[in-house]
């Protein structure tokens, strides 16, 4: 694709971004339509919470795929949707946390839940790490923070690892799905390790 004219055309880029936005909205549309049709089964609160959490996790992984895709294809279109995907992930993560508080906890036992339950602590940590990333995702913040913006946004790596821990701790007896996601995350972190290899020993800390 590099060098070809159509792939750099503004209209094509716009269509690509719209398509990406549509795909990223699918879990939300899916949920809304199923809630409207009351087809989430007898325990809809649980379903909604699980679906939102999984959507956030999947979008976070998708976000981390963009830089490698750009490197391998040489096409910058991937980078143009990276922030949007990341913000979608944050959107789903926020709804997931709210759904958990409302539907699963009913706003009770908050202290015990967030201190004593390891998988919840992991999920909460993952979410907390995403907050500064979402807040500093604008062009203005990017400029203002300069080099430290890049450093700050490396928080996405621990966030996704802790999110995976949050899932694997809940996997009941069949860990196949989470093994698959774990391998995907491993590959995505490994390529970055490789890229940084020539420059420093601790690639996720140094630029």
């Amino acid at each position: 694709m590099p060098g070809s004219r159509w792939s750099g055309h503004p209209r094509f880029l716009l269509a690509f971004r719209l398509l990406a936005a549509l795909l990223a909205s699918m879990p939300f549309l899916f949920l809304v339509s199923n809630i409207a049709a009351q087809s989430l089964g007898p325990d809809p609160g649980q379903e909604v919470t699980e679906l939102l959490g999984l959507a956030a996790f999947q979008l976070l992984i998708a976000t981390l795929c963009m830089t490698p895709l750009k490197r391998w294809t040489g096409w910058s279109g991937w980078i143009r949707i990276r922030r949007m995907l990341g913000l979608f992930a944050f959107f789903y993560a926020t709804l997931h946390v709210l759904a958990f508080l409302q539907f699963i906890l009913g706003w009770t036992d908050l202290w015990v839940t967030f201190t004593k339950r390891p998988y919840i602590v992991a999920g909460a940590l993952s979410f907390l790490m995403l907050i500064p990333l979402a807040l500093t995702s604008t062009q203005g913040m990017m400029k203002r923070l300069g080099r430290s913006w890049k450093q700050l946004h490396k928080l996405v790596y621990p966030s996704i690892v802790v999110a995976w821990v949050h899932f694997i701790w809940q996997a009941r007896s069949d860990v196949g799905e989470m093994v698959f996601y774990g391998l995907a995350i491993l590959v995505l972190l490994a390529v970055r390790w490789k890229w940084a290899g020539s420059r420093g020993m601790i690639p996720f800390v140094r630029g």
């Binding site: 809630i35 989430l40 007898p42 325990d43 809809p44 609160g45 649980q46 909604v48 539907f103 009913g106 009770t108 036992d109 015990v112 839940t113 339950r117 390891p118 998988y119 919840i120 701790w169 809940q170």
Partner: peptide, 19 residues
């Protein structure tokens, strides 16, 4: 349960707005 409280339960079917 080590991962959640057993003090309450959701009697099914449960609703989204009226759990």
């Amino acid at each position: 349960h080590p991962r959640w409280s057993q003090k309450r339960e959701r009697r099914l079917p449960s609703g989204l707005l009226s759990p």
